[in-house]
């Protein structure tokens, strides 16, 4: 099977291990990923904050490119990219005038509404299914305690995946891998990544609260599905320890990396060398 793939800017740079592990896992599941040809940035929140139309035009262009390449399903691992594509799709499908306007703004051939947007969570949960995931597990992650961290994902516009306040999709996938998904208090708290560079102290404060909650829950690692959550909690962990005199050493791993390990993929194909906090806890699997 072949589906479309929209890595977005982060998966090409700071979140290469996400990119790598998504590809590895999909490969094991027999899913071929075809990158949207010549995709462009979704615009993130910066485009939207400047111009509403620009915020829609950039993801619109990606939808056009996907449709042109006959990609019916597009997998966007980054929640921000996914939200922007899904929201733009929703708006354009529901409003012809807007569609016409965006077509003219982007000077493109126009988007017909033929793309089915997927995030890794609903793709693995609904399209692939827990049954198939269980079947593929070669090394069950027995004894591994995982705090599944969703951040703002479930609240983003265009995203309609799971319970907004108490999501469980990732937990269910993690449990299917044989690991223990911890019930914890900060699943959906904001990590402050968008202020990570400009107001670092805020990101450190929020990151500390999340790591603290994960540690209290007894987690060995935190599973994420967002490149910003990952880099904010992983790369900034030393900063948090420095500022708050804490001693966190919690690996922040992508869900797909855990899947890869459980599926028996070589660790070299999962990008563990990219982590700042070494995920040693996964060595035994």
């Amino acid at each position: 099977m072949e589906i479309g793939y929209f890595p977005g800017c982060s998966l090409h740079s700071t979140a290469q291990e996400f990119d790598l592990s998504v590809k590895t896992v999909c490969d094991i599941l027999g899913v071929r990923l075809m990158e949207i040809p010549d995709w462009n940035c979704c615009g993130a929140s910066a485009a939207h904050e400047t111009s509403e139309e620009l915020g829609l035009a950039l993801p619109y262009l990606d939808l056009v490119k996907a449709e042109t390449a006959n990609l019916e399903t597009v997998l966007s691992p980054c929640p921000a990219c996914f939200s922007h594509l899904a929201e733009t799709h929703e708006k354009v499908v529901g409003d012809q005038t807007l569609g016409e306007r965006l077509k003219s703004v982007t000077e493109s051939r126009g988007y017909e509404g033929g793309v089915n947007n997927r995030h890794v969570l609903d793709y693995f949960m609904d399209d692939v299914g827990l049954g198939t995931i269980k079947e593929k597990v070669k090394t069950p992650l027995e004894g591994l305690k995982v705090a599944c961290y969703y951040g703002c994902l479930t609240r983003l516009p265009g995203v309609n995946l799971d319970s907004v306040e108490h999501p469980e999709m990732m937990d269910k996938i993690v449990a299917a891998l044989g690991a223990e998904a911890m019930d914890w208090t900060h699943k959906t708290e904001c990590c402050g990544a968008s202020l990570s560079i400009t107001r670092t102290e805020i990101a450190l404060r929020l990151g500390r609260e999340i790591l603290d909650a994960a540690q209290r829950a007894g987690a060995d690692c935190v599973a994420v599905v967002c490149p910003l959550c990952q880099s904010n909690l992983d790369v900034r962990q030393a900063g948090i320890n420095g500022k708050y005199k804490t001693a966190f050493s919690l690996p922040i791993v992508y869900l797909t990396q855990l899947m890869g390990v459980a599926f028996g993929a070589p660790k070299s194909q999962l990008g563990f060398d990219k982590h700042v906090v070494a995920p040693d806890v996964l060595k035994k699997y």
Binding site: T14, D38, N40, L61, E107, V276
Partner: peptide, 28 residues
């Protein structure tokens, strides 16, 4: 960790992106 690239990643056809930037309205 190889997380930052030295040279920018670029799209080949920048024209539609530029068009969007120059034409887009603040509010719809």
């Amino acid at each position: 960790k190889g997380k930052l690239k030295v040279a920018p990643d670029k799209v080949q056809d920048i024209a539609p992106v530029k068009a969007a930037f120059s034409k887009a309205k603040t509010f719809i």
